[in-house]
Computed example of a mutant assay.
Amino acid sequence: MSTTNSLPSQPQSLPLGEQDIIQLLSKLADVTDELGRVIVGQRSVVQQLIVAMLAGGHCLLEGAPGLAKTLMVSSLAKTLELDYKRIQFTPDLMPSDIIGTEILETDHDSGERFFKFKQGPVFTHILLADEINRTPPKTQAALLEAMQERTISYAGNIHPLPKPFFVLATQNPVEQSGTYALPEAQLDRFLMFVRVGYPSAEEEIEILARTTGTQSVTLKEVLHTEEILTLQSLVRQVDIASELLQYISQLVRDTRPDISGNQSVKEFVRWGAGPRAGQAIVLCAKANALLNQRFAVTLEDIRSVAHGVLRHRILLNFQAQAQNMDTDSVIDHLINHTPPPESPLVTNTSSSNAG
């Protein structure tokens, strides 16, 4: 991470001094280092997980079995002083297994019987929804309200979820047997959709060496609950130039084939991204800037998060499937053909470092 001796763009609304902010941001690097003690490679995936956390959103990880998706999420939870629960999604999982249910109890003094709501595992800070696409849509939908409203409605009562609250879900590629593709409405609840690829040859050798011996790693807690909430507040205060907001708006609008001027979109896209995609890009770009100890968003921040934000919000048509065109290729074409802002302020990273 690049550093300077001052904070020219330091937010003023939080009761934190310059050194407090520098120390807090340095802990983000410590989280990455701790995860590196367990996870070999995958630094881009880890960074996107942290970006989603800082932006206060949920993250969906997709990759083939055995790529340490579950280990990555559980290890991240161990570096944070947050409650953590894991649900293994299976075809017979019921909505009540996630959100909870009412149980009949008896008052020992009066003998009166009454129903009491017993909270399910969704009442936690970090919820790992493991292999979320192995359960039918009815059970998948049980998470919709929790992910959007941060509440659970049951029997006419609304139960708030703890703060912060993250759903970190994993899924196997939908073409594998025994999976149920997540509907677009549920996919849109995820701030980012991150693909986990295979390790390099060197990384795979390191994985074999680490996991077949006697070495064990105990991760330490780096960030506490209040620090995470403070970092989320800092994200909201990161500066973004009006030119970059216009660029993001144009990028998102160009995903819609009825109004897009992009030929790839017109040819291969059936349905484009909505305004929520633009909001997600702004928040993730701000979080990415803060992760790199800057209080101003640059064009590079936007481009680094665009794929994770857009790939699950663009629906391709049959022609794209016939030509083996994927959403990442469409996003690449969009980024390459959407004119960037001309102002030098949106690409200058040296004048906005945080520490």
Rank of each mutant, 00 (worst) to 15 (best):
A322V: 07
R276G: 10
F268A: 05
T106L: 08
T135Y: 08
L104A: 09
Q237E: 15
I21R: 03
V194W: 03
N157E: 15
F114V: 00
L76P: 01
D328P: 03
V174P: 01
Q148N: 13
K163N: 12
A185Y: 09
V194D: 00
S352Q: 02
G274P: 05
E221R: 15
L128E: 06
G178D: 08
I158G: 00
G213N: 12
Q237N: 10
E175W: 06
F115T: 06
E204R: 13
H312F: 04
A55M: 07
V282H: 03
S74N: 06
P8I: 12
A241N: 15
V45K: 04
I158Q: 13
S329V: 05
L244D: 03
Q148D: 12
L71R: 12
S350D: 14
R303V: 01
D326G: 12
L219D: 03
R270V: 00
A241Y: 10
P160V: 10
M72F: 03
D97S: 14
N133A: 07
S6Q: 14
T225N: 12
L231K: 08
F318D: 12
T255W: 09
R113N: 02
D188I: 10
A306H: 01
Q47Y: 00
T101A: 13
F89H: 05
L25R: 01
Q23V: 00
N336V: 06
